[in-house]
Nucleic acid binder design. Structure first.
Lengths: 250, 250
DNA sequence: AAGTGGTCTAGACCACCGA
DNA sequence: CGGTGGTCTAGACCACTTT
């Protein structure tokens, strides 16, 4: 038998501009986060919850659904709504190397090697959905951590989307610049592989020729489905690994 | 100005057990898939759509929301609902090497090297949420494609979840076995890296010592948040790359 | 049989966008 | 300003699970 329903300190502020379902959803998430709602515990049925909060059932359902989508709650017909049994709470994020490094306290530094316009190759044109030969931005960067080279980042962007200022590129990550320009990132298609370092890559990254490198190709889309960036990156395998979470479509 | 609203052949069957919102959602998705609804085109407002179909607005909204969540539609307040501007329709799937290979027409073969119970090491115990030293299943497999070795797969599973039959493991993939046993996979946390092949790995995978290998560690969770599998995999980099899609949390 | 979530209705008012 | 999606209500019936 699962744990009994847990009485919670929940309340909503009807004068707030924050949607009621969102207020509730945040309070439930906070309760799960700090352990007030323990894994496996039941939430109490939706009708009671609605009555206690002075909300309608659809509003309560909307709050719960948001957390189900996040993977924090599970609904079972005839049973109830329970907190999931583990700490799989890490969000699924579009990993930005800059943010990854910063979160790891590594103070990333960036050197812009190239920041130009170039005609799109067939590969780049296909990825970005532009015509072959059309001008696209090319940004090539070398990223350092702890004073050592870490990755070579080559990115292509459609023109007219963003001003690409070299000092800014050296001060922050590309994704932050894009978000700052009002672009809402939505999804990315990635391919991750490995290969041996060429002579040029070995030189650039201070590795031996033939050393294992992690390669990543990524096309990023905004919320309207436009491709806003195509990147080809090479990482020193000894110093970096990708971490991410996948969700299974039901 | 965006394209004008497109009149569509939509209808719902109220005698069907399939939920109305789902019927509508499927028809809209099919129309997008086959190009009847072109990228950028407007869907027509929700009230009219509801009226034409004899549905209530919340039901129509539920159908549209499902496609927004899938990334096929975008809503804009004051504007309307549009089809996204690109073909980012690929589902975000938990990649199974077996399925990947089969989809590529490569007829994967599997050789089970080990299928035993072992006490969990600290790393495995932490990943699966069991106590260190508790027995866990260990399955070690070598996967072939076109008669050549392709990857070494080492998986740990909690006991009591699944019968691990060696012939079945050689005939199909682990994920299919798990789904067949009624386990609903929900999400996975992965780490992908690269390194040089050790002598033992080189021997096993018919590579040279020092050849680049792609490594993957994965913990898979079911819909209740339990860890149901932990895997440590090694792939020949020349013959495999990971493809996946990430979604950005708003 | 009782209790749960799943679906659905027919309204309502508000916030935002474009003309 | 009119039209759009965003939020919310107060009910209803159904399907499923457990007792």
């Amino acid at each position: 038998m699962p744990d009994p329903a847990v009485p919670l300190q929940l309340s909503v502020d009807r004068t707030s501009p924050v949607p009621l379902y969102f207020q509730l959803s945040q309070q439930l998430e906070a309760a799960i986060e700090r352990g007030t709602l323990t894994p496996g515990s039941l939430l109490g049925n939706e009708i009671d919850l609605a009555g206690r909060l002075g909300l309608s059932r659809p509003t309560v359902r909307q709050a719960i659904q948001a957390l189900v989508d996040k993977g924090l709650l599970v609904r079972r017909r005839g049973v109830g709504t329970q907190v999931v049994h583990s700490q799989v709470k890490r969000p699924l994020e579009l990993s930005s190397l800059y943010d990854d490094l910063e979160a790891a306290g590594q103070k990333p530094a960036t050197k812009v090697l190239r920041n130009t316009l170039e005609p799109a190759t067939a590969e780049v044109a296909a990825a970005l959905g532009v015509a072959e030969g059309d001008d696209v931005h090319l940004v090539e960067r070398l990223r350092y951590a702890h004073g050592e080279p870490m990755a070579q980042l080559r990115n292509y962007l459609p023109t007219g989307l963003l001003a690409l200022d070299t000092p800014q590129l050296e001060a922050t990550g590309l994704y932050r610049l894009m978000r700052g320009a009002g672009i809402t990132l939505h999804s990315a298609r990635q391919s991750v592989g490995a290969r041996a370092a060429t002579a040029a890559e070995a030189e650039l990254l201070a590795e031996a020729v033939g050393a294992p490198l992690l390669t990543m190709q990524r096309t990023t889309f905004d919320d309207t489905g436009r491709a806003v960036e195509f990147g080809t990156h090479v990482y020193r395998a000894a110093r970096y690994a990708f971490e991410f979470q996948l969700l299974v479509r039901p």
